[in-house]
Design a protein around this nucleic acid. Structure first.
Lengths: 336, 336
DNA sequence: TTGAAAGCGCTAACAC
DNA sequence: GTGTTAGCGCTTTCAA
């Protein structure tokens, strides 16, 4: 077994209190005493036990991150930024995947995990915000990209409606008129896809085009394969789109794949815009036009929100609703 | 503050012991008593404090995963599988990114993190195995894809030499003779790139071809941009390769990008093979031939190793050295 | 400046 | 089947 603070104290001929002071640099300690203690620590290979420290402090220094899939480039990139940002604050991140499963999201909150974390950053998928915050209570929660929590919890997201509108307007500005949308998820409760659909339709209407149901393709998930399938359906049902707005880059890349297989030229025959700005899109063929959310800011702000709540003595700070900037990055898939 | 086991006991009119039994389902409890306790738990919203439980048990139920970058598709996918596998064992995973920084790798082991984890799975980058296991002691460590730990720690990896040899042999079997390699990393200490280079050269020699230094391109990192640059250098220096073996799919995708920009046809002018079998490769243009390691098995075995050590009373179990299967997946980039 | 000791919330050995 | 209690390793109040 490894040695404890008591062992160090005994070895250095001082009390536990003094060792604790040395380790934390808290109170003033006589230089000679400090030296002796340091020496004992070294010799015994002592390392403080975090469980004990957490028990005392009532905090664990661990913040949870719950995302649908680590596997997805967008979430992986975001998770990476969050981990970096957390380290800057001396926090550790535990990552959980919900795999788009409502039960998994709930279990995450009610299960053991709920007690080991000081707070949770969650990108909801299957559950609506109300359920999540209710299940988490009293754990501080930050929602990523969720619709209308109505002051239930802090929230950080891009303006999905505006971003989708811009993306669609860009396609229309190229003279395209039959603009399809890939990525609706009517079976989900998180609302993100619905917001993007709203923006898409708004842009069409503003250009004097009536949105048509056959232009809107739902998908079961957001993988390349789903985008490829949706694109194939779009072509098979005779919608004859001359442009496609995919609600994620992965879907867009799948759509590009199908377009290529079917002998369509991009952007000449079909222009394509994605959402997320993942690295694959920058090196795909053709390179992908996309909506780029400021992921660094999402990470920074989410952790700031959490820090405010965990360290704040007051419980009644109103829920923040932060909108993070985005920009349209035009590349080859729309002739950029 | 949230309520403790004692509060529940008081409310249910039983002792702490009984509540503990109910929570853990350990000893037998009278049905009526159980009901009362459950009710009290419900009413108070009681949740066990994991810090206290850890302190008691001497274990935290947390296993660390240290990878160079979450951002990279290969590691993201692997991390996802490890998280799933960990959940199956009721373990929580904390993920740390080393960003290829030796100092970060060391700090991870000597810092606070070392005390909160029951064990660590690490994909080393900058530090050699000896340093890692030394710094981690007495924390159980599993190395992923590292060269020759010589019994220092458990290790799980594919047979890099054999896999690289197969990939190269595949290119040679297509009649290619000027087979280049992208992805050497002489500045790193983890050895993986060197093993793949060995396999690459061995295959060339077996085909009666003398490996040439100008065919081997080093890279600072394994991103698409590095692959793109390496490919450009290869073309600019007049090596005139008719095939390229990239040590990772990301590098390969970057190389494909450059080939396209330079007007080279793949596979007609240059055939390309990658390594990792990430999802992007399956939907790229052209689709990418690659070496596919069994990632599920890497995840499962790594956790099995850790479980054996954490739960094993004996300290002298010899270090395991597990080789995970791989297979060559032939796709369009080599005419498959 | 340092020591003694209480107690964070939980589990389990020991009683009954 | 249930109660009592010691103690995991640490921080911190109170004394000295």
């Amino acid at each position: 077994m490894s040695s404890s603070l008591k062992d160090v104290a005994a070895r250095a001929g001082v009390s536990a209190r003094t060792v604790s002071n040395v380790v934390n640099g808290s109170a003033r300690v006589a230089p000679e005493t400090r030296r002796r203690v340091q020496e004992a620590i070294e010799e015994l290979g002592y390392r403080p036990n975090l469980a004990a420290r957490s028990l005392r402090a009532g905090r664990t220094g661990i913040v949870g991150l719950a995302i649908p899939e680590l596997h997805s480039p967008y979430f992986a990139e975001l998770a990476g930024l969050l981990v970096d940002e957390a380290r800057r604050r001396s926090w550790t991140v535990v990552i959980d995947q919900t795999r788009g499963d409502a039960e998994a999201e709930r279990r995450l909150l009610t299960g053991d995990g709920g007690r080991v974390m000081d707070g949770l950053i969650i990108s909801p998928w299957a559950l609506p915000a109300e359920d999540i915050t209710a299940a988490a209570r009293p754990l501080p929660v930050v929602l990523l990209g969720e619709r209308s929590p109505q002051g239930l919890a802090d929230r950080v997201a891009v303006d999905n409606v505006a971003a989708a509108e811009e993306a669609t307007a860009h396609l229309l500005s190229l003279g395209r008129r039959r603009v399809a949308a890939i990525g609706l998820q009517p079976h989900l409760r998180n609302g993100t896809a619905e917001l993007r659909a709203e923006g898409y339709r708004a842009a069409l209407r503003r250009a004097g085009i009536t949105p048509r149901p056959e232009w809107e393709r739902p998908v079961p998930a957001l993988h390349r394969a789903d985008g490829a399938r949706a694109m194939a359906e779009l072509l098979d049902t005779g919608a004859e789109p001359d442009a496609v707005f995919a609600f994620s880059d992965e879907l867009a890349l799948g759509a590009l794949h199908t377009a290529h297989v079917r002998g369509l030229r991009v952007p000449e025959d079909v222009a394509v815009v994605g959402f997320d700005d993942i690295e694959d899109g920058r090196f795909g063929r053709p390179t992908l036009t996309t909506v780029s959310p400021d992921k660094g800011q999402i990470a920074a702000r989410a952790l700031q929100c959490l820090a405010d709540r965990v360290y704040s003595p007051r419980n009644d700070v109103p829920a923040a609703d932060l909108t993070v900037p985005h920009r349209l990055v035009v590349r080859a898939s729309t002739g950029g």
